[in-house]
Amino acid sequence: MLAVISTLLLLCLPVAPVTVSTSRSEVKVQQNSDAILSCEFKTERDQNPRIEWKKKDNDVSFVYFNGNFTGPFLGRAKIEGATVTLRKVMLKDAGEYRCEVSASADTVKLGETNVTLKVLVPPQIPDCEIPSSALTGSVVELRCSDKNSIPPASYTWYKDKKPLFPPRFNATYIVDKHTGVLRFTKISRADAGQYHCEARNGVGQPKSCLGQHMNIDDLNISAIIAGVVVLCLVISVCILGAWYAHRQGYFSRHRGRSFWIPQCHGVAHISSQNLSRTEDIPHAGYGPPPQDTQDFKHTQSFML
Rank of each mutant, 00 (worst) to 15 (best):
N32E: 14
K55C: 04
E40F: 06
S25L: 00
E26A: 12
Q47P: 00
Q30N: 11
G95I: 07
D93W: 09
A94Q: 11
V29C: 00
K55V: 07
S23K: 11
N114I: 07
I51D: 05
R50M: 11
E52N: 10
D106G: 01
F65Y: 13
V108C: 04
T70M: 13
D46K: 05
Q47T: 14
G75C: 10
E44G: 06
C39Y: 01
V108S: 08
N68S: 15
A105N: 08
E96S: 05
K109Y: 03
E44Q: 14
A77W: 02
R76L: 05
R50D: 07
G75W: 10
K92A: 15
T83W: 00
A77N: 05
T113A: 12
V29H: 00
N48C: 10
V108Q: 07
V89H: 07
F65M: 09
D93E: 09
N58A: 08
Y64R: 01
E112H: 14
S61A: 14
K109E: 08
I51T: 09
V60M: 12
K109W: 04
K54D: 08
L37C: 05
K42P: 05
F65H: 12
T85S: 10
I36P: 00
E80Y: 09
D106C: 00
D59H: 13
S104Q: 11
V60E: 11
T43R: 03
E112W: 09
S102E: 12
E96M: 10
K56G: 04
L37Y: 01
D57K: 08
